[in-house]
Write a protein that binds this DNA or RNA. Structure first.
Lengths: 123, 123
DNA sequence: CCTTGACTTCGAGTGCGCTCGAAGTCCTAG
DNA sequence: CTAGGACTTCGAGCGCACTCGAAGTCAAGG
């Protein structure tokens, strides 16, 4: 698979894929006879996971750390697990915060929805 | 209240407060005889709400839109309500996405936590 | 043969949200 | 009188994560 097709299939732009390779998030791609990048379907799994980390708010530097551990092989499994557990905690905390904010938002909207009440000042 | 104290009480930096005023998120502050900004406690409520919008992922340009409507008075209440309802939907969707990701993360961690199983490839 | 279009590298540019520093003013305490 | 510290404006700089454009190479189709 060439980079254009990979881009279509994973949802990243061609530019972004090359950028990710440059910074080390993606392994150096194999090349075909024209030195065009030639990808295996397996990369889709990895990009999918990276995307998952990204959408849950992990900064690139942390994804990078995970990516490097992964390249070092199975003896880093413990460290990778730790990293993911830590991240999971972050995400849980973030979700909890958002849910609290949703309550505030609900209350605020309820205030706007009750214009018949005097004393609503919408501050 | 001067800007330094406000900063302490609202959690923004002095620099950020001035920045927010500059871009229109905060109203032009009243000045004392030394042309230092002089704040009323009421500003804390507004900053608190802005912070809530920020932590729920609203971009500054949208906060700005809300802030401008607010300054235009009560006839914009409907539009403000709409804006908040739209934002609430965004936040709900975001929470749902995060919760789905948490399941994926759980599964991934469970894979690391079961090293006795052959065939775990941690991809 | 020639055009088309997808690929290549490289470095510069973008948008967001701050963050900082310089240079100056002004009040207060010693 | 003076030193300190908090304030003022202004514009520049930063970190993040891309995003883009120029200039070139290469293979396939008409």
């Amino acid at each position: 698979m060439k980079i254009g097709e990979l881009a279509k299939r994973c949802g990243l732009s061609v530019h972004t894929i090359r950028y990710y390779e440059r910074i080390g998030l993606l392994p150096m791609a194999d090349r075909d006879q024209s030195s065009h990048r030639d990808y295996d379907d397996a990369i889709l799994t990895w990009i999918g996971f990276l995307t998952r980390l990204k959408t849950t708010g992990m900064p690139i530097r942390d994804m990078l750390r995970y990516a490097r551990l992964r390249q070092q092989g199975s003896e880093t499994a413990g460290e990778r697990r730790q990293l993911l557990e830590h991240h999971r905690q972050q995400v849980r905390a973030h979700v909890a915060g958002l849910q609290e904010s949703l309550l505030v938002l609900d209350a605020k909207i309820a205030g706007y929805a009750a214009p018949q009440l005097k004393g609503q000042n919408h501050e």
